[in-house]
């Protein structure tokens, strides 16, 4: 079989590298102060000075998109870290040990994952209130089950492998087998779930901010919130909505391509020549 370059991974990584470097740059330098209002420059279309134009308060949109994407990405980062860490621990333990606890934890997992995460986030936020820290914790906790499920099934598979039995026979402790022997073997699967996690986190954060339940405007700019605000000026200044919306989409596309490229969904896209021959 001819080996094709992994275009998904290449495009995904380049796209994400570009956006992430723009975001990191935005932490230190933006073309203008994202919060500086200038009544004289209200709602200017894209031009050389303001590459993406200005909003209804005369703030530079490129600067705000850089700051907003930073907010979104940092929330996604912390949320995914929480979800991946606890999900790996829970999934690892239940998958490796099995038994009744495994059964119970997985049923709870199934019940939680049956609900869309935005819906669950709405429920929690209606109880706890809004804000940046709360969103991180809410999303982080909501991501635990999906990580736990993936890690569990991998651990359950690896547990049966000879190398694990071997290690057991040699008297290696269970915790060491789990984290030193098995964990590196499931890294590719874990990595692509992390990419999917980022994808979902960016979408969830943007949705929550768009619904005015995420990052509050007093905290920092956020892409979802910019979309919400831009809607009132859609006809006179469509570039506001376009900039924020495209930024969200590009972030999501980058992570989606990476997870695709890492082969999490490899089963979905068989490319072998044999298949073509059979159907021809």
């Amino acid at each position: 079989m001819r080996k094709r370059p992994n275009y998904n991974l290449i495009f995904g990584c380049s796209l994400t590298a570009i956006t992430v470097s723009a975001i990191i740059l935005g932490f230190f330098w933006t073309p203008f102060d994202p919060d500086a209002m200038s009544p004289a420059e209200k709602s200017i279309g894209p031009c050389l000075e303001h590459l993406l134009g200005t909003d209804n308060f005369g703030r530079d949109i490129l600067s705000r998109v850089m700051e907003g994407a930073g907010t979104t990405l940092s929330i996604a980062f912390f949320a995914v870290s929480i979800g991946a860490t606890f999900g790996t621990i829970i999934g690892g333990l239940t998958g490796y040990l099995g038994g009744v606890v495994d059964e119970i934890v997985m049923r709870i997992n199934d019940a939680v994952t049956a609900f869309p995460s935005v819906l669950l986030a709405l429920v929690v936020v209606s109880i706890t209130g809004t804000g940046r820290t709360i969103i991180i914790f809410v999303l982080g906790i909501l991501f635990i089950p999906s990580f736990a499920r993936v890690v569990r099934s991998e651990f359950a598979k690896q547990r049966q492998m000879d190398y694990v039995r071997n290690a057991r026979l040699m008297g290696v402790r269970h915790t060491r087998i789990m984290f030193v022997h098995i964990l590196p073997n499931i890294a590719p699967v874990l990595l692509s779930s992390v990419a999917i996690g980022f994808n979902n986190a960016v979408l969830a954060e943007a949705s929550m901010s768009y619904l005015n339940l995420g990052v509050q405007p007093t905290e920092s700019a956020s892409l979802g919130r910019m979309l919400l605000d831009s809607q009132s000026y859609l006809f006179s200044a469509p570039w506001q909505a376009l900039s924020a919306g495209c930024a969200i989409s590009i972030l999501i596309l980058g992570f989606a391509l990476i997870s695709e490229g890492l082969g999490y969904r490899q089963m979905w896209r068989p490319t072998s020549k044999r298949r073509r021959k059979v159907s021809a």
């Binding site: 979408l203 943007a206 949705s207 768009y210 979309l227 831009s230 809607q231 859609l234 006809f235 469509p238 909505a241 919306g245 969200i248 989409s249 590009i250 999501i252 596309l253 989606a256 391509l257 695709e260």
Partner: peptide, 17 residues
């Protein structure tokens, strides 16, 4: 792949416009 990456609310805003 492109369509999958656009959040529905942004598609909604594009449709509105």
């Amino acid at each position: 792949q492109l369509i999958m990456s656009v959040p529905p609310f942004f598609i909604g805003i594009i449709f509105t416009y």
